[in-house]
């Protein structure tokens, strides 16, 4: 299928982009790398009046180092992380996740900001950045604001972005040298959207032990007190984690089991525990 007709503007800088976003009536969509929006346009699932192409805007293709965080422009690509052009907040945490997103040809154009703004619960960045405690920076003609990932992603494919607003950067806190990151993505084949994601950040120096169950058809379930749910010898407290997943909407027992596995395995990685031996016969 071919996309329905739309108009396109290519602003030269951020202020022109914000002006274009704010000025137009009708359905306006932001086009960054186009790797999530492109298929939906081609399938005519989305029929915007106007696309605002931000992929070339220099302000969105830069990285700033702050004392305790790295600030990535929205148009930094997955391949930028994969190849190390974008610095990592810890030992290859971002690179490891980025290199597992879709396929190389997609990673060469797909962006971290675009992925977050699309807010597909099964997307890698949504879960990863929740685990890393990241924030997004949002700009509009009337100013800027910051939101945590949890506040930004309001539902499946839904964000707190208001008309005229643009996600301009992602701020990811640096972790200590002792920090460990666990990431388990369950999919039926390489490059597929995840059916379950487990992500966990354990940073003893900063007192962080955060775990995330993602790809649950809703915003990821963030567990801030992962220490209470995981023990290095006995592994995940499946009953409690299962209760939280159920409360988070994962009602189907089979789904819940798979999510618990992903979560438990990610936590085992992050706690550097031997993965709990898979259960033997019933």
């Amino acid at each position: 299928m071919k996309a329905a007709r739309f108009d396109l503007v290519r602003p030269r800088d951020l202020s022109e982009a914000l002006a274009a976003l704010g000025a137009t009536a009708g359905l306006v969509k932001v086009l960054a790398g186009g790797q999530s929006l492109g298929p939906m346009l081609n399938l005519r699932l989305v029929e915007p009046d106007l696309l605002v192409d931000i992929a070339g805007i220099p302000e969105l293709r830069r990285i700033d180092r702050e004392a305790d965080a790295l600030v990535f422009g929205a148009c930094v690509t997955h391949a930028d992380f994969e190849d190390g052009r974008a610095p990592d907040v810890g030992r290859d945490m971002l690179a490891r996740v980025a290199s597992g997103i879709a396929y190389r040809a997609v990673r060469n154009r797909g962006t971290i900001g675009g992925s977050l703004a699309h807010a597909d619960p099964a997307a890698d960045w949504v879960s990863t950045l929740s685990a890393l405690g990241a924030e997004v920076e949002i700009a509009s003609r009337s100013g800027r604001r910051r939101l945590t990932i949890g506040a930004f992603i309001t539902g499946a494919l839904a964000t707190a972005l208001q008309p005229g607003e643009l996600l301009v950067a992602v701020r990811i806190p640096l972790v200590s040298a002792a920090a460990r990151f666990g990431y388990v993505k369950h999919a039926r084949k390489i490059g597929e959207f995840a059916h379950a994601i487990g992500a966990a950040l354990v940073d003893p120096e900063r007192g962080t032990a955060r775990a995330v169950a993602g790809a649950i058809d809703a915003p990821p379930l963030v567990i801030e007190d992962a220490l209470a749910l995981f023990d290095r010898s006995s592994g995940l407290d499946r009953e409690e984690a299962g209760r939280r997943l159920a409360a988070g909407g994962v009602e189907d027992a089979v789904d819940r089991h798979i999510h618990l596995e992903a979560l438990g395995r990610a936590l085992a990685q992050a706690f550097d525990a031997t993965p709990p031996a898979l259960r033997s016969a019933a």
Partner: peptide, 18 residues
């Protein structure tokens, strides 16, 4: 034979055993 079908069968076998 998908992962979901396998897990479903494994869980249901466990249930019937218990």
């Amino acid at each position: 034979v998908t992962p979901r079908r396998i897990v479903e069968a494994v869980l249901s076998a466990r249930e019937s055993v218990s």
